[in-house]
Design a protein around this nucleic acid. Sequence first.
DNA 1: TGGCAGGCCAATT
DNA 2: AATTGGCCTGCC
Length: 277
Amino acid sequence: MLNDRGCDIIIEDDFDLGKISSSGQCFRSREFPDGRFRFIAGERVLYISSLKESRHYHVSCSADEWNNFWMDYFDLSRDYKSIRDSIKTQNEFDREAVRYGSGIRILRQEPWEMLVSFIISQRKSIPAIKTAIEKLAKTAGKPIQTDCEVIYTFPSPKQLLSLSEEELAACGLGYRSGYVRDAAERVASGETDLADIAVYDDKGLFDELVKVRGVGKKVANCICLFGYGRLSMVPEDVWILRAIDEDFNGCNPFPAYGKEAGLVQQYIFYYKKHKGA
DNA sequence: TGGCAGGCCAATT
DNA sequence: AATTGGCCTGCC
């Protein structure tokens, strides 16, 4: 950290590192005992911590890198505060969920990483997902030396394909190994072009993603939301289904939230999972 | 200690 | 179109 000059920045909009990091959308972020948070994107690693003065943060990167890359990663050009105010809440539960979750942002992460990560996520707890992804990165990714640790990049399709069956199995993916390999083959061959489909409309994008084995409705929606910034897409996992059942009388509230329904989903997911804890 | 985990696929009605 | 069993392994 002696070399970590970085720079100080101000973020006016909703921004809560703890909520972002624990809202189940990114699996490689980490909070350090000293309060710093780490995020990884491609070959970039960011260390960020909030300063005493409110809305002020210190970041380990240059102002240029912050402005040109990480602002977009944290979706900071979008005004979440205004969106929260405009959400047509339907009862006390979603009102409280939006309040409770304020500070969450929908990260703009690498589509490929989202594809693999959420294939792995099925029938796995978050700690197990994190363990598997770290093993995958350490086995097939590229080491990056930062000021304080060695990080492994998320493996590219080719890097994943270079692994033997045994190496892949050792990452603890279980029956998902075949899905991940299949996804890597599709992307490496160009059969699925994750960059090309970024221009598709929501339905077109979704339809392309579910062509990949191991990608169903829920996983595809996660990729759309967290990898392509499609804020209207709503992943319905067990927590959301539970909320629909218990807090909305079994009546799905999401269609009524409109073009930011996916963000409301994230607030409700976070609230349902973390409240009372 | 074993049941269960932020689903998906394939086989069956 | 809707329902159901099976799946790999790591965690609590």
